[in-house]
Design a protein around this nucleic acid. Sequence first.
DNA 1: ATTTATGCAAAGTTTTTGCAGGTTG
DNA 2: CAACCTGCAAAAACTTTGCATAAAT
Lengths: 173, 173
Amino acid sequence: MIGDIMNSAKKTSDSLDKDEDKLPVGESLGQDPVFDSLRKRGHRITAQRETILQIFREQPHGEHLSAEELHAKLLERGSNVSLATAYRTLKLLSSLGLLRELDFAEGHKHYELKQDTLPHQHIICTGCNLTLEFEDHFLEEAGQKIGSRYNFEVIDAQFKIFGLCPNCKLKRR
Amino acid sequence: MIGDIMNSAKKTSDSLDKDEDKLPVGESLGQDPVFDSLRKRGHRITAQRETILQIFREQPHGEHLSAEELHAKLLERGSNVSLATAYRTLKLLSSLGLLRELDFAEGHKHYELKQDTLPHQHIICTGCNLTLEFEDHFLEEAGQKIGSRYNFEVIDAQFKIFGLCPNCKLKRR
DNA sequence: ATTTATGCAAAGTTTTTGCAGGTTG
DNA sequence: CAACCTGCAAAAACTTTGCATAAAT
């Protein structure tokens, strides 16, 4: 049988939030686990990285951002971070396992904050790109077990189902 | 517990095969299921498509090709198919569910022939891009069940594990 | 015949990089 | 102040497209 699938599917869409304050560098960054991970490997905490992280934290759970979308949000809030830096930061945070890098099939990647507490997987319509999410900690567990079988240190386990949504099933002749 | 994982992992690499004969158009294409799928939707059987399909069929199970790699193999065997056609064909065959479109994380897609009999999933090292495969029909089944729960017609279920291979685990300080 | 596919070259996207100047620890 | 980061603009990598010609049904 299948692991427990919490029926928490919802549509993926962009949320247009107002701009919010960005902290000045170094404000009460006491024990932030993300920043700790950065420091631990000799990376630095910059204003740009703080703002980017903040944006990801403000994203509703399950939303993901492309590099362009992140950049747009940065500009929206008056933070003049360059697109190049957005790309560099996304790559860095992903390599540290702090962001999750998602590939659907539209030619660019999406990123979301990694939160071990809320694994979630995707089911994608190849007809209209509708993306639903579902959660199944059984799958997460399977990833860990398979990884350790091959002596891998697992960073992320992704289960993706491609298919046709009810609508596109009909339209398809 | 986990479904049966057949320990059939192997490295992904390029096999340099010699060029082989390509059939002239229309030779004994009797009931080829791939060509049937094409015809059924009004697409045509061209020499280019035949050669491309043949290349995928000659690939050892588990190997995947990028558009560039496919194109290289086409040239190797003297088939002057343009890169544009390679891209167009890959897209077409994938949309028909005949090829499986794989995204690892290196900026381009890979494709492999879809064979329902031999599902396989990937575990990818984010340090060195080493890719191992494993099979687990339990996961395949899970994909079907989850898909039908959302009323999707499932085309493909992919389970991908990202992590650090034993080597990169060490090198990483 | 009619419709679909191909090749070419040009254009479009997405991502990376070199380098000079700025910032962090 | 040494090492690291950023912005900018240019380049690279990857993919799509317009159009005239060629091929398939």
